[in-house]
């Protein structure tokens, strides 16, 4: 859920004027925000499945350190979604294991 108004920070600066595609589903995004933020705002929490057991993983450290939030972005696997900004029309896929290089 987006925080539209905030007692200290005031109203949200950006509006969700662009769209990204996640596993074929279109979701709104705010220009400049990180991919992970658009996903969480849309209620998507599972970003990746582990190589061995296929367990769900998601947003964890938020600063590009833990690599738990990696997804396949525009056919590039293992993109850290917490430090990668959205772009209009970006195609994002839930990644399994190390993902596949499709460039």
């Amino acid at each position: 859920m987006r925080i539209e108004d905030h007692p200290i920070l005031g109203p949200a600066k950006g509006e969700a004027t662009i769209e990204i595609e996640v596993d074929g589903r279109k979701i709104p995004a705010v220009p400049g925000e990180m991919i992970s933020s658009a996903l969480i705002a849309a209620g998507i929490k599972v970003f990746r499945r582990t190589h061995g057991k296929g367990e769900a993983r998601g947003y964890f450290c938020g600063i590009g350190q833990c690599t738990d939030c990696m997804m396949t972005v525009d056919n590039m696997p293992s993109i850290r979604t917490c430090i990668t900004p959205v772009k209009d029309g970006m195609k994002i896929k839930t990644q399994s294991g190390h993902g596949k290089w499709e460039v």
Binding site: G58, F60, G62
Partner: peptide
């Protein structure tokens, strides 16, 4: 599990 995260995150 997704939903567990750092406080800073």
């Amino acid at each position: 599990l997704p939903g567990v995260m750092g406080a800073g995150a």
